[in-house]
Design a protein around this nucleic acid. Structure first.
Lengths: 209, 209, 209, 209
DNA sequence: AATGAATGAGCGTTCATTCAT
DNA sequence: TATGAATGAACGCTCATTCAT
């Protein structure tokens, strides 16, 4: 995570024993579900505690403030997301062009899941008023974009760094924007496959310039 | 607008006199500010009333339910946005290609404003849990996309309707996605101009296919 | 009414012109309806004003305080009730025994109406915490009981005043109590006729003692 | 009780520990006092909390809804009442006639207490607009009447069920009606003893018919 | 007389947080 | 570690009342 100080806080600030670590993780995963099911407005500690089968006092023991839980939860989701991202890329060490297409395909498919469709817009809104959320958001997109830059450079070795940056920013923007139009339950969700093809063509054509 | 019954409710359900109408409008504009500054989570009636210099009872007189205020506010912003959109397009009745570029340029410039950068992500998040917000969101994007479809058809008369739809969905997605990357205060805000050029090239190249 | 100061306040404290008097009366009658339909808890000035087709400001002009309206309304209902009571008694100037039976019959029939079933219990509850309501309640029952005393004395000329009082108090209590058991919508409403016969027998038997 | 599910909810829906149970009960008893003193219209949670020396949040912990508190309170009072009723009846297992007289005597004495005088009229008014209160009211009177039916049957073994019902309904009505005339602070409170004798004679005479 | 506008207190309820055990 | 109990601030909303016109 941003400052490398994350790995030991994700599981709750107090979590010495193994049992404690497991419970903290259980709470985290329950929290994600509640967040996705109910949205931020109904994301209450009571609701999380109840869903996790834990007393509210105990939840508080692991995550002293609501913001602690929120941050741990966002990091948890983002980590899973980035890990999957990397995994897809390395799925088969074939031609960079194929790798790039595979990553883009994963991205666009993933944005069709209820989880991603609901989670990320909440994060974006959060980022507007919460510096920590904003930092996390920058972090995840820069990490994801890093993968794109790397692959794109292999596909088009002559591209300068600046163009590489701009093109990958544009790719990311298009992907994230598609969440709103072709995400789960959205108006154009049924054309997600066609949009995926179009996107591939679009970005295949561009940097040849 | 969705139900066609909007024009006389935007200014509050009460509001018979001129003074009343003005106050309702004042509340609406204050509400936008609060919504932008604090986000939906802290968008409370008390906060709006205080910011507007109005008693909470009086706010309630104009907008009996919080949802009334929220809806009126969203419609107010969206209307302004769409009106501006149309105005830009008709700015000069020149070649369709130039009109299309002008609309896209407006869009990408507008997304750099604090207002747009903050407002729309809140709307997207809201739409995840509020059917009315979802409807409003679909409405504004379909209206905006309608303009793109019209212009694009003039530029490329041979394009079939399906392709027209997909391309304009993609354009919209890219624009909105850019809000997250090149919006006000975002990481790539300083390259907004360059991204604008890139976008124009990107979509100029595509449908020629 | 109790202090003879009632006749000019019933129509609202301000009510100089004829039109004004009519409007005050209209409000009063509407208020009764609202009170009966909605119960005391939802008996709000807004509701009365709306039902009467009058602005809340105007309602306030006629009845400056809610308690003014409430009191005028209670007096209005009570007056109607007592007038009807007297009318029934004098219906036919026949034997006192028949008159007494007729009055009791009216009473027990009236308690089966929705109006009486709902109005009086509200008054009783009100009387527990409102001196004015308590006074009004004593007034109406003493006036009604006066009629009973008079008739009963004619039927049983030898009865002393004390017995007369006790018996008529008991009669009144039985009638009013029946509201709870055989009033409109109550469990024994369907046996109201049989209960009426039983009551007649009950009180016919008693004072012969 | 109505649904048979009452015995463990009367003390509040939370209340796991002994201290909790005691506090829930303390709140209940305070609630009765407030209800008696102020009437339903001023029976607010804040008033109860303050009178009980408890934070409003804590009151809410035990009784999540106002209706929960109201229902628990009504049941609490009614239960005490019915228990006392039964106890009086069984006081001495003598002749049924004496038992009946004792029950009636208790009833008429009890209606002279401030508690009963004020509580029941509120319940009656409540029952006009609250189905739950109406059900509770029917329940308590049917239970009480059941005792009368049983005793009266022993006194007059030849009476058919229908007559038994009508006579006991009339007895109940007279008793409850007396609350309004001879209850605590009422006009004829000082003649309660005389009225008691009269009632006894009245109903002793009746069914012999 | 009559209206629409405006106020402010109070309502039931929710909730993050704290605390004693 | 874990619980149930407890707090207090804030929320959306209702309402009697007042006021300028």
């Amino acid at each position: 995570m941003p400052h490398g100080a994350r790995d030991n806080t994700e599981n709750g600030e107090a979590a010495g024993t193994r049992k404690g670590r497991e419970r903290a993780r259980h709470i985290l995963e329950t929290a994600v579900e509640v967040f996705l099911d109910q949205g931020y407005a109904r994301f209450t500690l009571r609701a999380v505690a109840e869903a996790a089968g834990v007393s509210s006092g105990n939840l508080n023991y692991y995550y002293p403030r609501k913001s602690d839980l929120l941050q741990a939860m966002v990091e948890h989701v983002i980590d899973g997301y980035l890990a999957e991202f990397e995994r897809r890329r390395r799925g088969a060490p074939d031609a960079p062009q194929a790798q790039l297409e595979r990553v883009l395909a994963f991205w666009i498919d993933d944005l069709g899941t209820a989880r991603t469709t609901r989670f990320f817009p909440e994060l974006w809104a959060l980022a507007n008023h919460d510096r920590e959320a904003a930092r996390l958001m920058e972090y995840v997109y820069e990490r994801a974009r890093g993968v794109l830059v790397e692959l794109l450079r292999e596909v088009h070795p002559r591209l300068d760094r600046d163009t590489l940056d701009l093109v990958t920013v544009l790719m990311s923007a298009t992907m994230e924007g598609l969440t709103l139009f072709a995400g789960d339950g959205k108006l154009w969700a049924h054309r997600r496959a066609a949009l995926r093809e179009l996107v591939q063509r679009l970005f295949a054509a561009l940097p040849a310039d």
